[in-house]
Design a protein around this nucleic acid. Structure first.
Length: 293
DNA sequence: CCGCGGGCCTGAGAGC
DNA sequence: TGCTCTCAGGCCCGCG
């Protein structure tokens, strides 16, 4: 599922019940996620207070009073479902849908706030890890990540520098989390469409001589920021069965301009193009061959 | 070092 | 209805 906007939406959904609250009881029903949960996972969490809930790229990071950090990744199909204190989950479609997937409820956090957060992940590409805060800098999963696209450090100069000399396509470069951290297949397609840049263009063409950024780099940075901000505001995208923690659907999928729109007319003003689907590095790319150069 | 393809899993949907 | 095939929002790893 989840790229930066979806992960940020999940983080915001978890915040009210987790931040400042204690893990009263933790259920590790299935430990064989992307990597096995540590054997003492439950013991190291129970009794700890969450002092802050943050995000880096597509990782959610919970700071614990023990000095450890709980790192969580949703993989392709992971999601959290939240139940508030004293409230049964609302009956109806969501409950029905949930009953189908209860077999994939792998980890359950019972918080002192009274809230319960349930991690569901059919494909089990997600992961959870406990890391000492002092060694967070050395954590292999985080160490090589590039800049946060919504942070101040990310600008045209930085993007151009990261792409200098890259022989690969712009599409592949933007999917590379070392170049910029948090984009996935959807938002790369959407950002390139907004910037009117072809996904097949060489990444190195974002920089002029000496690696100086050109107008394409500037346009791409603006497009990335805009699409991520728009998507966060819409609560992320809901494809297939993914939902927000409150069971509501994000609705940014209705605003896609290129992704999953093969053969539809290009939405760029006065562009006569038709959205095409191609495969790059084994993944679908959607783009307009007319206005994306 | 770089870029690419395989593999990890399950489920939904299309086509027969 | 049921089978088979393809595809899916991610990312580590090994290969050349």
């Amino acid at each position: 599922m989840p790229e930066l906007p979806e992960v940020e939406t999940v983080r915001r959904g978890l915040q009210p019940l987790m931040e400042g609250a204690r893990f009263e009881r933790v259920e590790a029903r299935r430990g064989d996620l992307r990597w096995p949960l540590p054997k003492d996972f439950v013991k190291r969490l129970e009794g700890q207070t969450v002092t802050g809930l943050g995000r880096r790229a597509k990782y959610i990071l919970a700071d614990l009073s023990s000095g450890e950090v709980l790192l969580m990744h949703l993989g392709m199909s992971g999601s959290f479902r939240v139940a508030q204190a004293g409230h049964e989950e609302t009956p109806g479609d969501f409950l029905h849908e949930r009953s189908k997937s209860a077999a994939h409820d792998h980890v359950v956090f019972h918080m002192s706030s009274g809230g319960v957060a349930t991690f569901n992940d059919p494909r089990r590409f997600g992961c959870m890890k406990l890391i000492a805060r002092g060694s967070l800098e050395q954590e292999p999963l985080l160490r090589a990540l590039g800049p946060e696209p919504l942070g101040n450090a990310f600008d045209a100069a930085m993007l151009a520098a990261a792409c200098t000399g890259k022989q690969t396509s712009l599409k592949a470069a933007l999917l590379d989390q070392r170049v910029v951290a948090g984009l996935g297949n959807i938002y790369v397609c959407e950002a390139l469409h907004r910037a009117h840049l072809s996904p097949k263009r060489k990444a190195s063409t974002l920089a002029g001589r000496k690696g100086a950024p050109n107008d394409r780099a500037a346009a791409l940075v603006e497009a990335i920021r805009a699409v991520l901000n728009d998507a966060i505001e819409a609560g992320g995208s809901s494809l297939r069965d993914h939902r927000r923690t409150d069971g509501e659907l994000g609705y940014f999928q209705h605003a896609f301009r290129a992704y999953d729109r093969e053969n539809a007319p290009c939405p760029t003003r006065r562009c006569p193009g038709i959205i095409r689907r191609i495969v790059q590095n084994g993944r679908s790319t959607f783009y307009c061959p007319v206005c994306q150069k």
